[in-house]
């Protein structure tokens, strides 16, 4: 197990380097002259050229990239072209917002997904099962941006229960709609996985034994079936969290939630290169860390993986 974690940790810096290089290349190719953007629309050609030399935009891209890596490690993430604020400070402000909405969505998705999945498995092949599974397929077939518009229309504009967009303090009503929108497709997915995992345990000897002992159905489900069904569920939660991070930008833009995804989107729209570069790197690095974490968690949860590594 330690060996597994160790080897994954060793590869991580390499992956981060590859990631930042790809993002650098992508941004290098983006149309828009950074020196011109920094100087402003009405600046003279001399000013633009002076900034180009000053910022090193005239140097070879490889040197620019290496300088960038050195600066990032030293904590100098540059200034936003838009606001002239330090990008690192901006990221420190917006990243927790994204973490908050993602975690809220993950919790909602686990609560909804696992309970619907268990319900469907317990009542398998009944009308409850069929309608739950139909809803789950439906939830997976809706584009996130459209689902966001629908929920906004229903809960904010028609019913007036929740604010349509923006953000407030922790535990404010603002987080409910963005988190719920993100949670709906992933809870549909989790419900299917949970149902399948529960049905797999249905025929297991320990469940048959528990039943024949005369245990109540409730304790058979909670004490014998669920603990054994957790493993596939845990492995899916990691994948799911990474998927939520991929979808979070759409949600943040539509609900004007001031997180990392919206920050990246605005930076792209304004060709704000330092801000875009930093936010893309942080978003992708977060996914890499989540993947690593879920692999380790899976290893800890599954005795077989531990044994395999030791053998």
């Amino acid at each position: 197990m330690l060996k597994l974690i160790g080897s994954r940790l060793l590869v991580l810096p390499l992956l981060l380097l590859l990631l930042s290089a790809l993002i650098f290349a992508l941004l290098y190719l983006l149309p828009g002259d950074p020196a011109r953007i920094m100087a402003g629309e009405y600046a003279s050609t001399e000013t633009v050229e002076r900034i180009r030399v000053q910022m090193g935009f005239d140097r070879h891209p490889a040197i620019q990239y290496l300088t960038y890596v050195r600066n990032v490690i030293q904590g100098e993430w540059g200034r936003s072209y838009q606001s002239n604020r330090l990008v690192l400070e901006d990221i420190k402000q917006v990243f927790p917002k994204t973490v908050k909405v993602t975690l809220a969505a993950e919790i909602m998705s686990i609560v909804l997904g696992v309970s619907f999945g268990v319900l469907a498995a317990v009542r398998s092949n009944s009308w409850i099962d069929r309608s739950l599974m139909t809803v789950s397929v439906l939830s997976l077939s809706m584009p996130l941006f459209w689902l966001a518009l629908l929920l906004q229309l229903l809960f904010a504009m028609r019913l007036g229960w929740l604010p349509p967009s923006g953000s407030g303090d922790l535990f404010s009503r603002y987080i409910i709609l963005p988190a719920l929108t993100l949670a709906i497709p992933s809870s549909g997915y989790l419900a299917r996985i949970t149902r399948a995992a529960m049905l797999d345990t249905q025929q297991a000897d320990y469940v048959l034994t528990a039943r024949s002992k005369g245990l109540r159905e409730f304790s058979v489900i909670t004490k014998h079936m669920l603990p054994n069904a957790w493993l596939p569920i845990i492995s899916v939660i990691g994948v799911d969290l990474a998927r939520l991070l991929a979808g979070v930008a759409i949600i943040e833009v539509i609900y004007a939630w001031p997180g990392l995804g919206k920050y990246a989107f605005d930076a792209l729209a304004h060709r704000d290169f330092p801000a875009l570069q930093a936010s893309l790197n942080v978003l992708a690095a977060a996914v890499l860390f989540v993947n690593l974490g879920s692999d380790i968690l899976y290893g800890l949860a599954d005795p077989r993986v531990r044994a395999e590594e030791n053998a």
């Binding site: 590869v11 390499l14 992956l15 590859l18 990631l19 790809l22 992508l26 941004l27 983006l30 149309p31 990474a242 991070l245 991929a246 979808g247 930008a249 759409i250 995804g261 990246a264 989107f265 792209l268 875009l276 893309l280 978003l283 992708a284 690095a285 996914v287 890499l288 993947n291």
Partner: peptide
């Protein structure tokens, strides 16, 4: 390793940058 990194990218924003 390249697929690992590519899978970590926020796909929609990267696709937006490419069409831009």
């Amino acid at each position: 390793r390249l697929t690992d990194v590519m899978l970590a990218f926020p796909a929609l924003i990267i696709a937006m940058a490419v069409t831009a």
